[in-house]
């Protein structure tokens, strides 16, 4: 772990990305404390302040750093709350998908035979269709809602984890310490959870980094298309979508700033993930 951190530090880009990522997560978690206003408290917003450009003053003397949207909401506040929803939804989905994928992957690797065949066929089937399409169709049939978005994101993610865990577990299973554990007659679940699992983690973390970035992007896309989160819980994608209509009249900020927040979030996760992948790849470790 220490060694990993020391190597990780050597890349300034990765280090900056990590710092940005931590800042974004903190901002999302602390949104109610940081935001100048609660954008969903109708008493705090004033329609007369609608579509003000960045830097404008409100009637009450507050400065809208990033401007306001059509209803007069402070964009900065809306983005902080939006981040919270975007990251919350994606992280929840990723954790659930990880749990399901790991369990199924372990089962496939450990039980083998028919269980393995069935699970892996499902994985192949799932992975042969683009996640975008699966999520879209699923939501088209299920309707919109935070819980439904999570179901869709879990559905498109689990297969990646199952495949990764199975691959890593098959390699680990043949190694000596597992043989030793078997000789000690440790129970199967015990072997799986206390011995196999920790060793499958590194590749899984790398995949999870890619997937969570993907999930955030996907959620935003679905919400933009109007099949994602409901209007009452606007994620970044929804904010961007709201700004679409105003853009034709040159009021770029309503879509632009939430988009920047989205890009910076996804990119910092990708860069950190990239670095982790390089470190995990022994061929690149000269």
């Amino acid at each position: 772990m220490q060694r990993l951190w020391r190597q990780f530090r050597q890349s300034p880009v990765a280090l900056i990305s990590l710092a940005v990522l931590v800042a974004i997560i903190a901002a999302a978690v602390l949104a109610p404390l940081l935001a100048p206003q609660n954008p969903y408290d109708l008493r705090q917003i004033d329609v007369l302040d609608g579509t003000l450009p960045p830097g404008s003053q409100s009637l009450t003397g507050m400065t809208y750093l990033l401007g306001t949207d059509g209803q007069g909401r402070d964009m900065l506040s809306a983005i902080l709350y939006g981040l919270r929803i975007s990251i919350g939804v994606s992280a929840t989905a990723t954790i659930i998908a990880l749990a399901i994928g790991m369990t199924l992957g372990m089962m496939a690797a450990y039980l083998g035979g028919r269980v393995d065949a069935v699970i892996m066929r499902l994985v192949d089937l799932q992975l042969s269709f683009p996640s975008m399409l699966i999520a879209l169709i699923l939501l088209a049939l299920l309707g919109r809602g935070v819980d439904k978005v999570i179901v869709a994101l879990v559905t498109v993610q689990w297969a990646y984890y199952a495949r990764t865990v199975r691959g890593a577990a098959l390699v680990e299973r043949g190694k000596e310490y597992i043989e030793a554990a078997k000789c000690l007659r440790l129970s199967t679940p015990r072997i799986v959870f206390s011995h196999l699992m920790p060793n499958c983690l590194p590749p899984l973390i790398v995949v999870a980094m890619v997937q969570i970035a993907h999930a955030i992007s996907l959620e935003a896309t679905l919400s933009f298309l109007g099949v994602g989160v409901p209007v009452t819980q606007p994620s970044l994608g929804m904010l961007i979508s709201n700004g679409f209509d105003f853009m034709m009249s040159g009021k770029y900020w309503i879509s632009f700033f939430p988009g920047i927040a989205l890009v910076v979030t996804v990119m910092s996760i990708n860069l950190v993930g990239d670095r982790l992948r390089d470190l995990g790849n022994p061929r690149l470790n000269r």
Partner: peptide, 23 residues
Amino acid sequence: SILGFSLPTFWVGLMLIMVFAVW
């Protein structure tokens, strides 16, 4: 290319419209 991977397609679309069509 990492930037390209991280840019959400729909947002890029909006920005393209804003720059090349509107401005």
